[in-house]
Design a protein around this nucleic acid. Structure first.
Lengths: 147, 147
DNA sequence: GTGCTTGCAAACAGTTTGCAGATAG
DNA sequence: CTATCTGCAAACTGTTTGCAAGCAC
């Protein structure tokens, strides 16, 4: 576990305890995985990973824990109408995603102009802009090489 | 029906005929609605409107027709994991949306920088960027005034 | 007349919920 | 000890599918 992963894990543990929630083994296992920030796992993916440590874990518990973390603002949920939702517990604030339509990998590109966009929209429309969602779809370099 | 609506309707009719698809009354009714470009209707919303003219219409037919128009590239589908999907048959290419979290109205803001963003992401990551999805969430001026 | 299209109902998939038993604090 | 959490199974919701009857061309 990297230092970042460890500190994010401790942060999440503190957040749960500080909001009067219990720290169960199943929750700890989930926190460990999402703190690592590797990929953008689905609920089922998390479930499969946790099951290797706690074989009796249920998918419902994974969903309930994710829901709790969403309420606490510690997890970003990427909802898809076609596919299962993905979760990011490392950067729980809106940020762009880049999705390969071939291998379905999801990465976080660095994009500089997003805040300018939000500002532009707010000024233009009179809306109070709270949040956003920005996904790019494309073909990643690896998939371009092997068609 | 405005001139724009009428011409878009004719365009859609031509597209169906040109691709060897049949022009049924149910399809004509749906084309008329989406050609008008008013709002971002859901499948159920379209269904309710069409039913006033053709009471025996089924929701499945609405879905099948929307699916066909998607394949032809004549309709943009906005998928939501929480809510029902919305459809835009007037601007069937990716463009930003602004969604009021209070009244759920959806509008199309004019945003100038989006193509720059796409370019930036492509150059930065080596991806071949095909498409994107950009939604802003906020509170519209009307809802801000009446809390 | 032919075969695409419709309408119905059942199937589907991901997510949520209710509840009885288990357990963290 | 007790309120929260878990695991199971059933419920839910929007969308898709299979099929027999209908109808556009």
């Amino acid at each position: 576990m990297t230092t970042d992963t460890e500190s994010r894990y401790q942060q999440l543990v503190a957040r749960l305890k500080g909001s009067d929630h219990r720290l169960t083994p199943q929750r700890m296992a989930l926190l460990r995985i999402i703190a690592s920030g590797e990929g953008h796992p689905s609920a089922t993916g998390l479930y499969e990973q946790i099951k290797t440590q706690f074989p009796t874990t249920s998918l419902a518990t994974v969903y309930k824990t994710l829901s709790l973390l969403k309420e606490l603002g510690e997890v970003l949920e990427l909802g898809f109408s076609n596919d299962d939702n993905r979760y990011d517990g490392n950067r729980p604030y809106p940020h762009p995603h880049l999705i390969c339509v071939r291998c379905h990998n999801i990465m976080d590109p660095q994009v500089s102009l997003v805040d300018d966009l939000t500002q532009e929209v707010a000024e233009l429309t009179g809306y109070q802009v709270i949040s956003h969602r920005l996904d790019f779809y494309g073909v990643c370099p690896a998939c371009r090489r092997s068609p």
